[in-house]
Structure formats: C-alpha cells, structure tokens
Amino acid sequence: MFDLIRRRLLTALPTLAAVIILSFILMRVAPGGPFDGERPLDPQTREALMSAYGLDKPLHEQITLYITNLLRGDFGPSLVYRDFTVTDLIARGLPVSLTLGGLALLLALILGLGAGLTTAARAGSRIDHGIMLGATLLTALPSFVVGPLLALLFGLWTGWLPVSGWGDGDARHMILPVIALALPAAGAIAKLARAGLAEVLGQDHIRMARARGMRWSRILIVHALRPALIPVASYLGPAAAGMLTGAVVIETVFALPGLGRYFVQGALNRDYPLVLGVVTLYAGLIILFNLLADLAYGWLDPRARL
C-alpha cells in the first residue's frame, strides 16, 4: 500500500515537472507577450517591465527560479491582475472550484451507480433501455448546452433557482451548476457500472451464489458490485479531468468566480504565471485522483494488492 503510494509519487513528480517545463517553454517561445497591448510600449518601459518580472533571464534560469518559488507555495505575480499574486487568485478561485467539482463528482457517483444498479437488476427491461438511452444522451450532450438549458428551465422560466453568481457559497446558487457539471459524468458512470455488472453477473461465482439460494439483491450487492466497480474506479482519473474542463464551461455559463474562469482569462490575456499556476494545480489534482483510483483498485480486487 505505502509502497504503491511511493511508487506512484515517483512517477507523479517527474510528470508534474514535465508539465511545468513544457508549458513554460510553450508560453515563452510563443509569439507575442503579455505587454503587447493595444498601443505599443516604448522600449525602455518594456525593458523595465521585462526585467522586473524576470523575463530577460535565460530560459533555464527562469524555470529553475519558478520551480524554487513553487516549492515555497509562491506561484509568482499575475501579469494582468497587477495587484494580485497568482497565489491570491488561486486562493480565491480554488474553494469555489473544489466545492463545485467535489459536489458534482459525488452527485455523478450517486446518480450513475444508482442507475447502473437499477438497470443491471432489470436487464433487458424497458426501464433498462430507457435509462441507458438517457445515459448515452447525457454523455453526448456538451455541458454548455445542458448548463444554459437548465438555467432556462429552472431559472429564467420558472424562477425557482438563481442562475448566476456564487452568492457567497449560498447552497441555492450551487444547485444548477453542480447538476449541470454532474450529468455527463453520471451518464458515463452509469454506462460503466451497467457494463461492469453485466459482465460480473455472467461469471461463475455469481452462479455459485445463486446455487446457494441467496436473495438476488444480496448477490448483487455482496458478490457482484465490488468487482463491477473496477471500471468505474479507473474512470475516476479521467472523470476528475473532465470535471475540471467542464468546470471551465460551467463557471463561465453560471458566472462563478472559480479557477476555470481565471484560466480562460489568463490564456486569452497571455498571463503566463496565472495560466502556469492553474495548469500545475490541475495536473496535481489529476495525479491525486489517479492515485485514489489506484488505491480503490486494491480495495475492489484483492488480487491487485501487493
């Protein structure tokens, strides 16, 4: 177990470093810089700015400096939001994004597993076909369609729920974004759980349990569910990544002050440190989720334990 964590971290750190360096180089070699605004700056001001932000040093020095600062929790200054450091911006955006993503992931798991169990228990029935069609539809609908659609239905037309802003963490503001973010993932989880259960239910140990005269519901939960969750666990990493990208859209649609918004703004404005910071953070989160998925494997299937 600890061995696994150690091993994963050993691959995670180089990955993280590679992300940082790759993004760093990309941003630097790109034509155009943060100070190429509407009107050209005079060379002197430009030079002063460049040296103030350390942009005139050789590339490898810049990278080393950046990573050293990163280790101290300093993501550097934002080039566009001049009064804030990137750390400030992340500190503001992260709680919003994490709440949103965490709740959505939870909701997606509940909905997806519920749907998977329901359909697998009634395989071949109309309920099964109906739910699975719905699940496929959900995975095929972009979140920027689901989002506005929900906003239209429950916000503008019925006026039940607020459709924009964070409301300082008011629960009612969260309902629609969380649902919009969770639905596509719920569809994918439902499909995985359904397929996993269908496969496990055809296996010998299920027939053995049936031969023992056990109740179907008990077989489903005690004997079938855990192995069937393995594909769901391996989806956890990609799901987390999906949540992060989805959050970019949802935060824009519902005007939430989350990280995704900063990322888009940063990318469009060539705010290097901001974009870099967010990418680094995201990479870290995804690596963390893949680690969680690996740990989940061990619990789901003792054969995977060391």
Binding site: A241, T245, A283
Partner: peptide, 11 residues
C-alpha cells in the same frame, strides 16, 4: 494520462 491535456491543447 495524468496531464491536463485539454489545457495543453488550449495553451
């Protein structure tokens, strides 16, 4: 797999 590739593409 662990890379936030969407973001690299955006970059």
């Amino acid at each position: 797999y662990a890379l936030p590739f969407m973001f690299v593409v955006i970059l």
